[in-house]
């Protein structure tokens, strides 16, 4: 699985960090998404999928 993010769509709602904290972080000041792992390990895939599904801004794209 490969992950890409669209920072221009991000609204800093924090669902990604809540659901997949090893894959995503947020900017200290603006809260905008920071991608920690472009290729999450298999044990993080389910969390990453949930993060992508729950991102209200649809700013996370998964490429299987």
């Amino acid at each position: 699985m490969r992950v890409t993010i669209d920072k221009s769509r991000c609204i800093a709602a924090g669902q990604c960090v809540l659901n997949a904290p090893f894959v995503f972080d947020q900017g200290e000041e603006d809260g905008i998404v920071i991608l920690l792992k472009e290729d999450p390990p298999p044990e993080q895939e389910e969390h990453t999928r949930r993060a992508a599904r729950l991102c209200p801004a649809e700013a996370i794209k998964l490429h299987d």
Partner: peptide, 8 residues
């Protein structure tokens, strides 16, 4: 200006 901290 406390994005990460707030959303935690």
């Amino acid at each position: 200006n406390a994005g990460a901290r707030t959303m935690r």
